[in-house]
């Protein structure tokens, strides 16, 4: 035991000479799965931003002459439609490329909703404690008492089915995750000397929370945000698949799957490719989130 311990302590000691950022980057680099995640996420971000230049066709353009054409390697494939077409003769490749934009948008909007509301309510709960804390965390418990996809369905059912309402529902559903993280760190940091010192110097509550306390829970928040993108994309696709999110003819991956469901006997490609895109996008954010967790906060490692 003793010898290996020595070896470990020297390892740690030599690490300390690097800056925390360099150390985090180094660990991120060492973690190959995280790197794969980063590359996938980057590709999807690229598709989302520049999709209209890459896509060979208009995703909504219909044509009776090119209905249900198979992908290029199969007999009867049509020129110019690499991954084939759907039952309205729309180019599948173009549609899944445009789908990246919608899914990224869903991620950004719903994660922003839950991040902002979750952080503020968590900070308030942890900072003021007492009945405010009890009230806020009780509401969070209630939100957690129903499976998140069910809660999202119920919310959308009452708001009415649309992509916008799906994003709101998904945002609301994941508020508790952020609130819990922030409340935990605020409770932990609050008692520390530097916060009390800042308070003694007359810093206002808002200043204390945002400038002194919140930066300390940045690492878990970044990790949760990345993982939140993954679940938001997945849940939005599920809602759209159930007809409660994006409506046809929007080229949303889940909605495309719903449209292709009736075609599985004749055209497997219509349901296969959008699903692969969902899987890859979710996988990318999950890999990146796991990698960031290892890199930013070694304590959280599993």
């Amino acid at each position: 035991m003793s010898c290996t311990q020595t070896a470990n302590t020297t390892t740690d000691a030599s690490c300390k000479s690097r800056s925390p950022l360099a150390e985090a980057l180094l660990r991120l680099h060492k973690n190959r799965t995280a790197l794969v995640g980063l590359i996938i996420v980057a590709v999807f971000a690229f598709l989302a931003i520049f999709g209209h230049w890459i896509a060979p066709h208009d995703p909504l353009e219909q044509s009776l002459y090119t209905k249900l054409k198979p992908p290029f390697w199969m007999p009867k494939a049509a020129d110019g439609f690499l991954l084939g077409t759907d039952d309205f003769g729309r180019d599948l490749l173009s549609r899944i490329i445009y789908g990246a934009r919608i899914s990224m948008l869903v991620g950004v909007v719903s994660v922003s909703i839950s991040l902002v509301i979750g952080t503020i309510s968590g900070a308030i709960a942890g900072f003021y404690r007492g009945w405010v804390d009890i009230l806020i965390m009780r509401v969070m418990d209630i939100l957690l008492a129903i499976p998140s996809i069910l809660l999202a369905i119920v919310i959308v059912a009452f708001l009415g089915p649309s992509l916008q309402n799906a994003m709101i529902a998904i945002g609301v559903v994941s508020i508790p995750r952020y609130a819990r993280i922030v409340r935990g760190s605020v409770l932990e940091e609050y008692s520390k000397d530097y916060v009390q010192a800042a308070r003694a110097l007359g810093a206002s509550d808002t200043r204390l929370i945002f400038l002194h306390i919140l930066p300390n829970c940045l690492a878990p928040l970044i990790v949760q945000t990345t993982l939140g993108f993954a679940s938001a994309i997945l849940e939005a696709a599920a809602l759209s698949f159930l007809g409660l999110g994006a409506q046809p003819p929007t080229p949303e991956w889940g909605a495309m799957l719903a449209g292709g469901r009736a075609l599985i006997l004749r055209a497997w490609w219509v349901v296969t490719f959008p699903g692969i895109m969902i899987l890859l996008a979710v996988l990318g954010f999950n890999l990146l989130g796991d990698g960031l967790r290892d890199a930013l906060d070694p304590r959280l490692r599993d």
Binding site: I264, T272, P274, G275, I278, L279, V282
Partner: peptide, 22 residues
């Protein structure tokens, strides 16, 4: 299991149907 965690199961169900039923 990494892939499994990220799986859209409504898609997986359809794929299984295509392979094993159709």
């Amino acid at each position: 299991s990494l892939v499994g965690v990220s799986m859209p199961i409504f898609w997986l169900g359809l794929v299984l149907m295509i392979i094993f039923s159709i």
